[in-house]
Design a protein around this nucleic acid. Structure first.
Length: 591
RNA sequence: GGGAUCGUAGUUCAGUUUGGUUAGAACGCCGGCCUGUCACGCCGGAGGUCGCGAGUUCGAGUCUCGUCGAUCCCGCCA
């Protein structure tokens, strides 16, 4: 750069700077070489400024500018001029002015980029991730990282102003049973022993409460070695919080303020507080899921009772085996073609449906292969329950209740997308509360924790932990945004006796509890305060804020679906010496 | 572990249904011309292991099998 020092960025200058001498530095976005005058769009993180080289002003500099190519890095010193006549570019914030250059320094050259950086076009993720540094130069990608920064700084400020301490917890910790698969790190010093990367700082933040820290937060990486999705990466970021001497209401109030501040600061949206709430049971009943998208209707209607003993054998057999029959009224969809219905049936099949019954409500009849099996009373009762009008389409789910819920819950979303009835640009928040403590795992033949094993049951249901664990509700709560779970938390158990009961209900015996969680159980006996907390999925939240369809768009260096990094080519082989030091003996073939 | 889509020039794609001459277009790149453009314009040029490997065939970008990679989904994700 020599003696040149940057005076402004590429989004700074306007008419108020006319005839000032300025120095800008940045990348050549594109050049327009007229043989005589040459225009350069100079780009940096902030914006674009037009640079002009005029041979009549400075012949040498103009000659040098002929060499410039896309993505070369330059410094220019020159004068801010108003653009002549009607040459303003309304698309640029700096479009009223341009820089007439006296001095040009080429700070670096560049290979021709493998994809264009000046257009809002799509290229394969393969290429984007391999050249992520180029991809991130594109403003529409960079803006997501800027948004993410703004969001996190707002959260920090909000929590800092409310007596929270940001405290780091270990990345090298111990593997715990239940939950996702752990990423393991072999110990060099302790042969045959392994650290695990944290799935969340859950136990540490509870112990910080027992340490009297009172209010903790951390914006922290978490790791889960499970398969990826558009909204799931193996390493992801949480806003993790924990508070002492609080109730569920206290936490919800603080969090609502935080989310409101975040939305105001990032997308300038004022949220209506308080956020509405729904119990888990109601959500499952009406939407078949614990994270309902409530921007549209198409709710599930339970027909099990009406159709109990009906003439349709498929339904009846399911009902006799304590399954359920539910349906969705797809308003105005009676004109769906055979193919539409086949597509929906196939879609339902992905989620375990073994078929999908339907009825088209016509003016004079209920048109369907199964209508004939139902009595007039059953048809009248169904029509009433579903509010069926001519022109409607009824879609049925019949199976065990969990399958019905999943199938119809997904079918409901798919229908809404097809009908394009989801209101865009709205932020529909919902708290789901009163989760069950446990759910029965059919494969393992035992109960597992719906939230996690440290979640407190309601105080008046402690007795049921032994007598009827499946019926116990917990003080857990999830925050749902447009059908996405963006955060979840609970009041924790602070009484060692209750914690032991919960372990017992989960089939974790004393010995195992001591071995795996002994440090927590011990800490609970030394004056653990009542406490609770919540954690938010930052990537998912920013994805929704930015209108992206994948969290890769809001992560600087994301992994592919095979959990690899195309930029660094991680994971990569290591040499045998490293393995030996870690007391590992490979059983795979080496190249 | 399973299902689906995709892979052709640097990039985005056409060509694959129905195998048949020298695999095309646009943008980009290189060279020339051009003093008010802003996706500058005009003229010319270079650029291809049709992801990779087998197979069928007189002949494969096109058909078959396998394999690699990207994406979406199911399972999985307390």
């Amino acid at each position: 750069m020599g003696t040149l020092r940057r005076t402004h960025n590429c989004n700074d200058l306007g008419l108020e700077n006319l005839s000032q001498e300025v120095t800008l530095m940045g990348w050549v976005l594109r050049r327009r070489d007229h043989g005589g005058v040459i225009f350069i769009d100079l780009r940096d993180r902030w914006g674009i400024t037009q640079i002009v080289f005029n041979p009549e002003i400075n012949k040498d500099v103009h000659a040098k500018a002929h060499q410039l190519r896309n993505e070369w890095v330059v410094a220019v010193r020159g004068k801010v001029e108003r653009r002549p006549g009607d040459m303003e570019n309304k698309k640029l914030k700096t479009g009223c002015i341009e820089i007439l250059v006296d001095e040009l320094r080429i700070l670096n050259t560049s290979e021709t980029p493998p994809f264009p950086l000046d257009e809002d076009s799509d290229f394969s993720d393969n290429l984007r991730l391999q050249y992520r540094y180029l991809d991130l130069r594109r403003p529409e990608v960079a803006k997501n990282l800027i948004l993410r920064h703004q969001a996190l700084q707002t959260v920090r400020t909000y929590l800092n102003n409310r007596e929270f301490l940001e405290i780091e917890t270990p990345m090298l910790t111990r593997s715990t049973p239940e939950g996702a698969r752990d990423y393991l790190v072999p110990s060099r010093v302790s042969a045959g022993k392994f650290f695990a990367l944290p799935q969340s700082p859950q136990l540490f933040k509870q112990i910080l409460m027992m340490s009297g820290m009172d209010r903790y937060y951390q914006i922290v990486k978490c790791f889960r070695d499970e398969d990826l999705r558009a909204d799931r990466q193996p390493e992801f970021t949480q806003i993790d919080m924990e508070l002492s001497f609080v109730t569920q209401e206290d936490i919800i109030t603080i969090v609502e303020g935080m989310i409101a501040a975040l939305f105001k600061a990032t997308v300038n949206v004022d949220l209506n507080l308080p956020i509405k709430r729904m119990t888990y049971d109601e959500s499952m009943l009406r939407f078949g899921t614990d994270r309902p998208d409530t921007r549209f209707g198409l709710e599930l209607v339970d027909l099990t009772e009406i159709l109990s003993g009906c003439g349709f054998k498929v339904f009846n057999t399911i009902i006799e085996k304590e399954g359920a029959v539910k349906a969705i009224n797809a308003k105005g969809c009676a004109n769906f073609s055979r193919k539409d219905l086949d597509d929906l049936t196939e879609y339902a099949g992905r989620f375990g449906a073994r078929g999908m019954a339907w009825i088209k409500i016509k003016d004079d009849e209920w048109q369907s292969p199964i209508t004939k099996f139902f009595s007039d009373e059953e048809i009248t009762a169904m029509g009433k329950a579903l509010d069926a009008q001519p022109g409607d389409l009824i879609l049925f789910g019949a199976d065990k209740i969990s399958t019905v819920h999943q199938v119809l819950g997904e079918l409901r979303l798919e229908l809404a997308r097809r009908l394009d009835i989801i209101e865009q640009d709205t932020y529909d928040f919902l708290w789901i509360t009163d989760f069950p403590m446990f759910e029965y795992d059919d494969d393992a033949k035992r109960f597992s924790a719906v939230h996690h094993p440290f979640t407190a049951p309601f105080d008046d249901q402690l007795d049921m932990l032994e007598s009827d664990p499946g019926a116990v509700k917990s003080q857990a709560y999830d925050l749902v945004l447009n059908g996405n779970e963006i955060g979840g938390g609970s009041i924790r158990i602070h009484n060692p006796a209750v914690q032991e009961k919960v372990f017992k209900a989960l089939g974790i015996d004393d010995e195992e509890a001591q071995e795996k969680f002994g440090f927590l159980l011990k800490a609970l006996t030394y004056g653990a305060p009542p406490h609770g907390g919540i954690a938010f999925g930052v990537d998912r939240l920013i994805m929704l804020l930015s209108g992206s369809t994948s969290i890769r768009e809001v992560i600087a260096f994301p992994k592919t679906q095979k959990a690899t990094c195309l930029l660094t080519e991680a994971p990569a082989p290591v040499n045998r010496k490293q393995l030996t030091e870690l007391h590992l003996r490979p059983d795979w073939k080496e190249d």
